[in-house]
Nucleic acid binder design. Structure first.
Length: 273
DNA sequence: ATACTCCCCTGAGAGC
DNA sequence: TGCTCTCAGGGGAGTA
């Protein structure tokens, strides 16, 4: 369940090994991972390009190549592993890139929900899927007025609105719960009832939560035991999310679990109104 | 136009 | 032990 802090952590970790590496070959073993172009075009087009940088946009990893940018969305369980060329392809390894020195860089995804896009660098920001992303948490344009304007006409719950990537890009289910807890907002509050002041609280707490999580290398809730897996430390800092039978750190009351928009949601009914 | 539901997938955990 | 059933979940597609 990588959200912005996990995606940033992965990007940083991959950069140390991938910058300057050339893609010599590519094989796709599960076609649906490749969202654009076709599997065949993807395999052909990516070969020969050098990885110059790895950044993020929303929850996407952006691999900057020679003529294209490779976008990767890890969705729930996408991961990357480094193996040796010729090593057997394991059950959940779906895309393989052969790099310099016979390094085999592999995309691993148990649920097969992840997606890759190979788009020309010239206009990739204007094209799907990045074109529909909202502001980054650190963007100066993310003000209380912006958020209020985006949500005040919506009748859905505030929890759902914060998951909407076209408003703020990068918040997922875990950090959403943490942000709402710090903002003293009930996840079922109608977004049209959220005040300008509360929008300010949400933005401030979004920045606090995400920045701290990034410092700590993200949250590892479910991880494979692997030396290559990215293990963050923020799970130790979670205040409400995942606290089944947990105690509210503010009032000592019981953390409640419910469903909001189909997502498992943790909150304190006493502190969040 | 907005807000739902379903679907993609598999493994973990519950129940029998 | 081993089977079946349910659930998790980001986000796109389809539907009301």
């Amino acid at each position: 369940m990588p959200e912005k802090p996990e995606v940033i952590t992965v990007a940083r970790s991959l950069k140390t090994r991938l910058i300057g590496q050339k893609i010599h070959a590519c094989s796709v073993y599960w076609d649906n991972i490749i969202a654009y172009p076709s599997k065949e075009e993807f395999e052909k087009q990516v070969v020969g390009q050098v990885i110059h940088d790895i950044t993020t946009r929303g929850k996407f990893l952006v691999f900057s190549l020679d003529t294209d940018n490779l976008l990767v969305h890890l969705r729930m369980e996408g991961k990357f592993f480094f193996r040796k060329k010729g090593d057997p392809i394991l059950k959940h390894e779906h895309v393989e890139f052969i790099l310099d020195n016979d390094v085999s860089f592999r995309y691993h995804d148990v649920r097969k929900f992840g997606k890759m896009y190979l788009l020309n660098k010239s206009d990739y920001m204007e094209k799907y899927p990045l074109c529909q992303l909202g502001l980054e948490y650190f963007d100066d344009a993310l003000t209380k007025e912006y958020l209020y304007e985006k949500i005040h006409a919506k009748k859905t719950h505030i929890k759902t609105v914060l998951l909407d990537q076209s408003i703020i890009a990068g918040i997922g289910n875990i950090y959403d719960d943490e942000i709402l807890f710090l903002s003293h907002l009930h996840p079922l509050r109608k977004s049209c009832d959220v005040t300008l002041k509360e929008c300010e609280d949400i933005i401030r707490n979004t920045r606090i939560v995400l920045e701290k999580a990034i410092q700590l290398g993200g949250t590892t809730i479910k991880s494979f035991t692997s030396e290559e897996g990215v293990h963050g430390l923020f799970q130790n800092e979670l205040l409400v999310h995942g606290k089944k039978d947990g105690v509210c750190p503010t009032c000592g009351g019981k953390i409640t679990i419910t469903k909001v928009g189909g997502r498992g949601t943790y909150f304190c009914p006493k502190c969040q109104k």
